[in-house]
Design a binder for these strands. Structure first.
Length: 910
DNA sequence: GAGAATGAAAT
DNA sequence: ATTTCATTCTC
């Protein structure tokens, strides 16, 4: 896609100014863009030359502030993109959902919807995003002290053209220094992998490096900067926010690329990532059953150094593998690259790279041993990062993928080497992990699980957890829940750290004991963990089933701890299965982990109980099934839209930015994601409120202003457009959307929200409604007052007006502006609005805790949690609701029911 | 490339 | 107060 862009860039560069330079603010490195492009399209070689050119260009641009912080190198590049604000984060996270819900809508429409959602979003939830944005911004600023937002006036002439590609999502951009290293060259020279390394390190790492810098600043510890003192870093980092950690990771990676890859690799995150990669690869290999498996094992083995039982076994394999490795070293990477399509190839490449690295830099590795200590601290990060990266790569299939992998590998190798010596310190954890890493292939799981089995497994796991069986230990250790909760409560960032530690410990234990096969299984857990970080719960199963490659990876982020137990059991049972594919067990384990991490477990447990009591399994089973399959898709996407996400991953992957993105994403993913349903309802109800205030303010402002007329025009225009959108929407909200959501989204939502899970997901939509109805109580506390002060008043005004535009039950649209209009609506909604709000899955969780604020007489205030009674009510309501739908208000219009009707209406409105 | 949203920063 | 630009991605 962006090839054209690249061309543009070049031309632009040459031509210079162009039309609009994007302003310096954009940080995008021309190099990166070019490189990326090159990679994708052409070969590595070009990159070098281009890079040079780019550099020059950059220099020219450099005038700007640039930031310099980092080394500069390319000051111009330094400019990173300005950090996203809360709203943007929200958009990024939910856009995919919106799109899914409303495929027809174009981005604009989606954006509008997102804006509506945002407007409706509970302050608490908003705050999460705000915090995240702030955190990121802080980190960013630290990293780039000199960074100016954008010099509005200045228009740096040159910069613009180069920046063109920008849109790719890079979060951060690279610190120059890393880039300077330009490891890429090395890579380029010979093997793709190397190139990848180089590429990845400098450019991609840049963002990370920035983060690192920020972290350093924040911490005040030189360590990071020095990198040498990495060991300290971790601990401090831990203290620091997740972003910082990311930064560290990135830095480590960048360093790798640059000067001393090996050492950095040694660093915790990288190391872990490497391990993860290896493990994952190994897993895949095993799946394939081909030689590859051997290789992977060898890689692992090295990592395993710690010398556990597994290690020994692997050693044997490794010997064999090693053989191949050597052979491949020389060229295999290239070949592999060519074949990128095949995942296998990728894996092989990665393996090769790793091996090569090890071979080359054994010395460094030793040095890194020091770093190993660090690992203990950060393992999680690395995992997540690695896992994500891998995923991205896989999906991409393309050569670009290679880059990321290469990077990853590099890190890994170093780490591997280090571990041997270091073992003493904290390796255990790592080792365990390694063992775990091997997790079975997701695919297998999927197939088997396909439907019932998965569900059963899930149920089983849930039950077990509830009982405290294996789950207990895990749970106890498993911080995930905590994390989740914390994340839900706050930002995901903080949460991240704790879990990591736990994971390691767990991992260690588990890994050892398990069989070699187990090792495979163990791997999945890692994935799970990752997923957990993100959000995706049921990933495993799905990944297993179809296109396991990309999806599976995403789906299964690593969650070490949990895996262990399941794996063991699995081992017993299914060593056989293990060979071919993951055993159900493994899947379960992964699932379990995921659940735990997500915080879903608790809710699931509750649901299960309910299900048993109240209705039959059917629901639960369905639910689970749905979960596994559909959830998976979501997982793939990462929390956000699956498809989109994949695409992104691909792009990112080549950029190398993938890592950064991933890192960022983790946190980003930690952010709650809300189901459309919740928003829809809210939108209906809330808008009004806003309208009141908003209208007032907006109107007043408008009137006061001179531009009023122009605004009017705009308004009109917007209204029209909006109306259009709404047209499309209406369908969605009701059933169509519901169906879509039903499983997938619903689950997703439930995931983040932690607590709020609705037992009867099977029907998804319906249940949700029910629940909502039941919950009705809660509701909109804030909305009333909320005034969208923020932003330009104009915008608000517009928005408010727009929002005002609401459809009445009749279906006609009434301009929102009129407060008067609201009345009728309010009356209708009165009952509803509250309910609707309450229903938001996310909100529900919160709400539940809080209490129903608004009490609508009608709806009994259901306590936050659904009791059986509550469920029953909901069910009843739902039935009623349905009835109404089919035939509007057939019943006597009991006051209570009325609310429901409004709800429907609201949906329609949307 | 425009545009749709919000928000933060800079002017 | 106003202008930029951050993200996303169709048209």
């Amino acid at each position: 896609m962006k090839g054209s862009n690249r061309n543009k860039d070049h031309s632009a560069e040459g031509e210079g100014a162009g039309k609009r330079p994007k302003r310096k603010c954009l940080q995008w490195h021309p190099l990166l863009s070019k490189k990326l492009l090159d990679f994708s399209e052409e070969e590595e070689e070009d990159e070098e030359e281009e890079d040079i050119d780019k550099v020059q260009l950059l220099e020219a641009d450099g005038l700007e502030q640039d930031v310099g912080e980092t080394e500069d190198d390319e000051s111009p590049e330094q400019r990173a993109r300005r950090p996203m604000n809360a709203f943007l984060l929200f958009c990024k996270r939910h856009r995919s959902l919106v799109r899914q819900e409303h495929p027809r809508l174009d981005n604009r429409g989606a954006t509008k919807i997102l804006a509506d959602w945002w407007a409706v979003l509970d302050p608490k939830e908003k705050q999460k995003y705000t915090d995240m944005a702030k955190e990121y911004k802080d980190a960013f600023m630290k990293a780039n002290p000199g960074y100016r937002w954008c010099p509005t006036t200045n228009k740096p002439v040159k910069s613009p053209t180069p920046t063109v590609n920008p849109r790719k999502k890079l979060w951060a951009f690279p610190s120059d220094s890393s880039r300077d290293l330009t490891t890429p060259k090395k890579a380029k020279t010979e093997e793709i992998p190397q190139l990848n390394f180089g590429m990845a390190d400098p450019t991609q790492m840049g963002g990370l490096s920035m983060l690192l810098l920020a972290g350093e600043h924040a911490l005040g510890t030189p360590e990071i900067s020095s990198r040498t003192s990495q060991p300290d870093g971790p601990s401090k980092q831990c203290q620091a926010s997740a972003l910082f950690q990311f930064a560290e990771i990135s830095s480590s990676t960048s360093q790798m690329g640059g000067a001393e890859p090996v050492k950095r690799c040694g660093n915790s995150a990288l190391f872990q990532l490497a391990e993860m990669c290896l493990a994952s690869e190994g897993m895949k290999m095993e799946e394939t059953k081909l030689i590859k498996s051997k290789e992977s094992d060898g890689g692992r083995i090295k990592e395993m150094e710690k010398g556990k039982e597994e290690r020994d076994i692997k050693m044997e394999k490794s010997n064999e593998a090693g053989f191949q490795k050597e052979a491949e070293f020389e060229k295999p990477s290239k070949e592999n690259i060519r074949d990128p399509k095949d995942l296998r190839n990728f894996e092989e490449l990665q393996m090769d790279n790793v091996m090569a690295i090890k071979m080359e830099d054994p010395k460094e590795i030793r040095k890194e041993s020091e770093d190993d200590q660090k690992y203990g601290h950060f393992p999680d990060f690395s995992y997540s990062a690695s896992s994500k990266i891998i995923i991205s790569d896989v999906p991409s299939r393309k050569d670009h993928m290679c880059h990321p992998h290469g990077i990853m590998f590099i890190e890994d190798p170093t780490t591997l080497n280090k571990p041997e010596k270091i073992k003493k310190k904290k390796k255990k954890s790592k080792l365990d992990r390694h063992g775990n890493d091997k997790p079975t292939p997701k695919k297998a799981c999927k197939k088997r699980q396909s439907s019932e089995s998965d569900i059963e497994s899930v149920m089983y796991t849930i039950e077990a957890v509830a009982k405290g069986d294996w789950g207990v230990d895990k749970l106890g250790e498993a911080p995930r829940k905590k994390v989740r909760t914390s994340s839900s409560g706050k930002g995901g960032i903080l949460d991240v750290k704790p879990p990591k530690k736990k994971v390691k410990s767990k991992e260690k234990k588990v890994s050892k004991e398990k069989c070699s096969d187990i090792t495979k299984e163990s791997r999945p857990p890692d994935f799970l963990n990752i997923s957990a970080s993100k959000n995706t719960p049921g990933e495993v199963p799905e990944g297993m089933k179809a296109e396991p490659l990309t999806p599976t990876e995403d789906a299964l982020p690593p969650s070490l701890p949990i895996q262990t137990k399941p794996e063991e059991s699995d081992c017993h049972r299914k060593t056989e299965t293990c060979g071919s594919r993951k055993s159900e067990r493994s899947c379960k384990g992964a699932l379990y982990k995921t659940l735990v991490s997500e915080g879903m477990l608790t809710s699931l447990r509750a649901n299960v109980d309910r299900g048993k009591r109240s209705s039959g399994k059917g629901n639960s089973s369905d639910h689970e099934g749905c979960w596994s399959e559909e959830s998976w898709a979501f997982n793939q996407s990462g929390t956000s839209g699956s498809k989109k996400f994949k695409k992104k991953l691909r792009e990112d992957s080549f950029l190398g930015s993938a890592k950064l993105d991933e890192e960022f994403e983790k946190k980003f993913n930690s952010l709650p994601q809300y189901s459309p349903l919740t928003f829809d309802r809210k939108c209906v109800s809330i808008p009004r409120k806003k309208k009141k205030t908003g209208n007032m303010s907006s109107e007043s402002t408008k009137t006061s202003k001179g531009p009023f007329q122009s605004q009017k025009k705009n308004l009109f225009h917007k209204i029209v457009s909006k109306y259009k959108h709404k047209k499309e929407k209406p369908n969605v909200p009701e059933k169509g959307s519901g169906d879509k959501w039903s499983h997938k989204q619903f689950f997703l939502d439930s995931i983040h929200p932690t607590e709020a899970i609705f037992p009867e997901d099977k029907n998804t939509m319906e249940p949700a409604y029910k629940v909502k109805n039941a919950l009705s109580i809660h509701n909109t506390p804030e909305p009333a007052m909320q005034e969208p002060l923020v932003g330009s008043q104009k915008r608000k005004a517009r928005k408010t007006k727009i929002t005002h535009l609401v459809r009445t039950a009749d279906g006609r649209v009434s301009p929102a502006g009129g407060t008067l209009d609201d009345k009728p609506k309010e009356q209708l909604q009165r009952s509803l609005p509250k309910v609707t709000e309450a229903y938001c899955s996310d909100d529900c969780s919160h709400n539940t805790v809080e209490e129903p604020r608004s009490n609508t007489p009608e709806m009994p205030a259901v306590s936050a949690f659904f009791s059986l009674a509550a469920l029953a009510e909901v069910a009843a309501m739902e039935n009623v609701h349905r009835g109404q739908r089919s035939t509007p208000l057939t019943h006597d219009g009991q006051p209570k029911e009325m609310p429901q009707a409004p709800v429907l209406i609201s949906c329609a409105d949307q």
